[in-house]
Nucleic acid binder design. Structure first.
Lengths: 306, 306
DNA sequence: ATATCTTAATCACTATTTTTAATCAAAGAA
DNA sequence: TTCTTTGATTAAAAATAGTGATTAAGATAT
């Protein structure tokens, strides 16, 4: 009944080849000889009964079909690695390496506290942090490069396990006169041209802020986009404009300029924070525990501040 | 970096052993000798670094950990089989074997039509039908024993891809006097004791009907539960009670007794029909096509009848 | 009580597969 | 030209998978 399934090692070689796009480098990275890798790919092609590479005497490219096989192979290798890791740490559901990814508008403000709490509450976990965009982190999560991500929701359609861990209110900061105006009449369209500063597009914070405040009108938004919250604040300060900040950043004191006003925005303006992990992961318990820790962390800060 | 991953063949042997709970029978089923299977399991245990079986000189049981490894191993084998099948049928996205499961209150009334349409629209697909309970079908879907399921929604929490394909209205049938009463005043609590007949509990139709009609009150429901729609109708007929039927069954003329009334229930009483498949499947396109066919089928019948 | 059957593990051995080192042929670059 | 880099090929070596016969320990039957 069940067919002649490919060898997992061969699939690993295929992934290496896809990553390095070069037989020699892929072989080196896999700690095998180039001929091993070459024949493994040939064997795979024979076994699967289809062409994975298009060869042209000097070099090669993956066929479209090969690309799809690589994707699936990656799923399989990720799942098997999960199994292997799970067994290695069996009996220690709250142990082992934990590769956690988060975005630049969360990581600096949440993860230092979280790392400390993890050290106390999950002493057997070795935490490895990674900062990147939502898009990249989702790719890395799917590919098994990280184990869990802390993101601002909602995230594009996906098939991960998701756990909401709290809300992060938006603040508005910047020129006192403008802030006062908005405070009295919360219509952002009264603001001068180019007086709203945002992060560059790869940061989801901008989307969330814009959609929360209904300021799609391009004229209001300054055409230069900042690449970090620190820069963003400085730009708003220097150009006497305003910008939006998440509460977790505000709590860490990112606004220190004396002549900048800082106001919490209405209660319905917030971003949701959530944990994501692979549905196939065998460490649900750890991730739920971690979710609880982050939930508590966000709650404590809420109570502390209010 | 990446660990020494287990051999897929060994994982297959592990699954066979789990299925047969006996080394000899599992070995036979895997077309290898008992010693091969025995040493494969030992090797797996060594490689994964943990005990999968508890042996007691005569027989064995899987350890709790072994059971979890089996579950994960099944995922891995299913994924690899998907890859292999995908390659075998590459270039024919609408070809190959399609194992479709459905429940007893859908299968007899929908699948004959669907099979015919498939033969026309998807001539390269070989359709294999399977009828079972929602619970069993979900297990079979997860374990790769079927490729797609047509179920009545909602189904318990799961991680499958789901596509709603239409609505199936509820009808009420049975004793004319009772039906007339309900028709004038749609309060089911006026019905006599034990006059509502339902399918046995493993059929989700009962749940859906009960929750749709708000008749949790046990007194109304007859304490004998039918095991098929045909029996259900006969029971309602014989005992002069009433019962609920899905439109797709009504359309196929399951109510033929002259002295039985048949009324469509209010528009908000229906069950949703949906297709489910593994998120990891490589045949999304086929399943979406199939969804469309079923959607059309349900729509046509709706138009045809109204 | 004894013999027989069934169980999974083990052993010595064989077959198969994987890997290697060395080489080859083709294409650029110096 | 000569040198380097590319992936494919070869034959030999190493590792792995598989086999049948055997064993030990319970269970069952006589």
């Amino acid at each position: 009944m069940s067919a002649n399934l490919p060898n997992l090692k061969h699939l690993q070689y295929l992934l290496a080849l896809h990553q390095y796009q070069n037989f020699n480098r892929a072989a080196d990275a896999s700690f095998v000889s180039q001929s091993t890798l070459s024949s493994a790919i040939l064997k795979l092609e024979e076994q699967l009964g289809c062409q994975l590479l298009e060869r042209d005497h000097k070099s090669f490219v993956f066929t479209p079909h090969g690309e799809e096989v690589v994707k699936k192979a990656r799923q399989i290798i990720v799942a098997t690695t999960e199994l292997s890791d799970y067994c290695r740490h069996y009996g220690m559901p709250f142990g082992g390496n934990l590769r956690l990814g988060s975005i630049p508008t969360i990581a600096p403000y949440l993860l230092t506290d979280l790392a400390e709490i993890c050290q106390q509450q999950l002493p057997d976990v070795s935490l490895y942090l990674r900062e990147d965009t939502t898009e990249n982190l989702m790719r890395m999560l799917a590919d098994g490069e990280i184990d869990v991500a802390i993101l601002a929701l909602p995230v594009p359609q996906h098939s991960f396990q998701q756990k909401v861990v709290g809300r992060d209110a938006f603040y508005i900061t910047g020129n006192s006169a403008l802030i006062n105006k908005v405070k009295q009449d919360p219509d952002y369209h009264q603001l001068p041209q180019h007086s709203i500063f945002l992060l560059s597009q790869e940061h989801c914070l901008s989307e969330h802020a814009v959609s929360a405040c209904n300021v799609e009108d391009q004229g209001l938004i300054h055409p230069f986009y900042a690449s970090s919250l620190t820069t963003l604040i400085q730009m708003a300060h220097y150009h006497k404009g305003v910008t939006f900040l998440p509460k977790m950043a505000v709590d860490k004191g990112v606004v220190s300029q004396k002549d900048m006003a800082l106001e919490k925005m209405p209660d319905d303006m917030y971003r949701e924070i959530g944990l994501l992990w692979r549905t196939t992961s065998m460490r649900q318990r750890l991730f739920l525990k971690l979710s609880q820790l982050v939930t508590d962390l966000l709650d404590v800060e809420k109570i502390h501040k209010s």
